[in-house]
Design a protein around this nucleic acid. Structure first.
Lengths: 335, 335
DNA sequence: TTCGCCCGTCGAAGCGCTTCGACGTCACGC
DNA sequence: GCGTGACGTCGAAGCGCTTCGACGGGCGAA
């Protein structure tokens, strides 16, 4: 292993000068810096991560806690993970992966051992048991999603409430008067996952405001469940002409089910979704949707974290504005 | 921060004794060990990861390199990631996530800075450019998948060749004489991804051996592509009665397409797949399939790694035997 | 010319832990 | 009764890096 003293010797300077030359934390003459850089390059010098962490009390690693549980759409999580890793690397940090199952003990462990400098949490619940711990930890944290009581914590997410509203408003503008929301699996609501509830709130509020008749149906993430929900929907609300889907895996099966039940999309039934654009575009009938900007959320989360690490104050709440894209699945209400 | 000297003081022993008592690397009297453990617990002592890594030259972190590229089925990757993290934790290790995009430079970085003790690589290509680097690295490595030239490296994977064979054999036993393989997207073959090619080999070999007529069709991972492939299949091989699918996202669309083209599954057409059991079971017609045991592969990979870290010799190749589960999608060849 | 200051560099002191060698003690065998 | 281990514990020496204070030399201001 080549160490800093090796570089120092080769460059004809002291180890501390090498450190300063490479980190830029003190002014070093152009000439010396070049010599140090050359020496480092030629020797293939890589500072030992542990030694650096010990001396500087910075590990340059952030923790990312991901949910691997039922009811969350895996591709969204993965896209998110990818964007966090990429963004972290841009800031010269690496990412340590923790699973939700590790629980609070896992968070405490990586924070207290100084394995990581900061943490990002996904899948935050409305009453998340980890909140007190996060407050007591001395490390900066960013949460994806909004718990009920978030004071003092930094949160970021798509503005799901407004996303729900946008979908309804869009349908209302097209003249639809009876709408339904096909939501996440029941367990997601039972857990009190914030974003799912916010969609419901937005959906309901916008429907009320517009004087629409509305209903909410949770739905398991299976094609069979989608078919059952489709049937129930038509039975319960025969006048239904607009549907909002907030449940990626059932979006396609649901549209299929409607089609099979004799309803044309968008001829008889308009469908909008809250899902990644990629999914919305890939369907036979491209679906009008509010995008789920996982990559953007991940990126911003990392940037917030870096600012906090740098000692800057950041806003407690960051709500990414929803963007609705019209596609082929919505049309004016049939006469 | 509470450090080892704090624990030592409280327990009335020296720091080294605390270290030995907690690590068990030297015999310590029952009585002393208990005192140390109590002190550590009461103070909430957590050894500083950097300091430990520096002194012991072990970081207790392993790197996991995941593919975030086109043509790989995300849920499979994620399940794999989950099992690696869980297994690593059982061995008191954490997982640092790297993306394929980081490339060789990323591997070298985490290895040379001693950030990680060992590495797991997913999505290995037949002629993977990273092989020479892995050989030169001083850290143990396990690869998921088999490159062409694997001497000196440890690999593990499902036995895809035999998996392909099993599917054909199953169809052959049921009397089918004309079969087709619907495979991964073209780019996967172009890249030379080992497992995809092995399935083709197994498929072809078994068909030849059994005297079956066979054809191979790569297929994009979209429903539209699935429909096109279904049509082409029926056009090119009118006598077709058996299909093997090795492409998770198109499995359902493909069956739908066949149904729409007037073929009943399994009445007119038997379908088998190589995919996670979960997916095979979730379809309207549960599909006879060879399981993709991602969790098991991940777990075994970690165990191999730990054995190598412990200095043990491990087999270079580990092939997990395929397991075919009969479900509703295969039946004897129609008369 | 002299004083003071800043720039560029060095030396040394840790960061918190592991580990090696050493040492005292006790039990046992001869 | 004494040598001999084995056992349990301690002290000290690092692991490789960052960082703080100090210092010499050059330059501008007085």
């Amino acid at each position: 292993m080549v160490k800093i003293t090796d570089v120092a010797r080769r460059a004809g300077v002291s180890p501390s000068t090498v450190s300063y030359a490479l980190s830029g934390k003190r002014p070093i003459s152009e000439e010396t810096r070049r010599r140090v850089e050359t020496a480092a390059r030629e020797l293939g010098y890589r500072p030992h991560a542990g030694a650096r962490a010990l001396a500087s009390s910075r590990s340059n690693v952030i923790a990312l806690v991901v949910p691997l549980r039922a009811g969350i759409h895996v591709p969204v999580v993965m896209q998110f993970v990818g964007s966090v890793v990429t963004a972290a690397r841009r800031h010269d940090h690496d990412v340590l992966l923790l699973t939700q199952e590790e629980g609070e003990e896992g968070l405490r462990r990586v924070a207290d051992t100084a394995l990581v400098d900061a943490l990002i949490l996904m899948d935050v619940q409305l009453h998340d048991p980890r909140l007190p711990l996060l407050r007591s930890l001395d490390r900066p944290t960013v949460m994806i999603g909004f718990p009920k009581e978030a004071d003092g914590l930094t949160c970021i997410d798509l503005d799901f409430r407004t996303a729900g509203e946008r979908c309804v408003d869009h349908l209302a503008q097209l003249g639809h008067r009876v709408v339904a929301l096909v939501g996440s699996p029941p367990e997601v609501y039972v857990r009190g996952t914030a974003f799912a509830q916010r969609v419901v709130q937005g959906f309901t509020a916008a429907a009320d405001r517009g004087g629409l008749v509305c209903a909410v149906h949770p739905c398991e993430a299976t094609p069979a469940a989608a078919r059952r929900v489709a049937e129930r929907l038509l039975r319960d609300q025969p006048a239904l002409t607009g549907v909002v889907v907030h449940n990626e895996p059932v979006l396609e099966p649901l549209i299929d089910a409607f089609t099979r039940l004799g309803l044309r999309v968008p001829g008889d039934l308009s469908v909008t979704a809250i899902c990644p654009d990629e999914l919305a575009e890939s369907l036979r009938v491209p679906v009008t949707s509010v995008a789920l900007p996982s990559a953007e959320v991940g990126e911003r989360a990392v940037e917030l974290l870096m600012e906090k690490l740098g000692g800057a104050a950041v806003p407690e709440a960051t709500l990414l504005p929803p963007r609705l894209t019209r596609r082929a699945s919505t049309a004016p209400r049939p006469a």
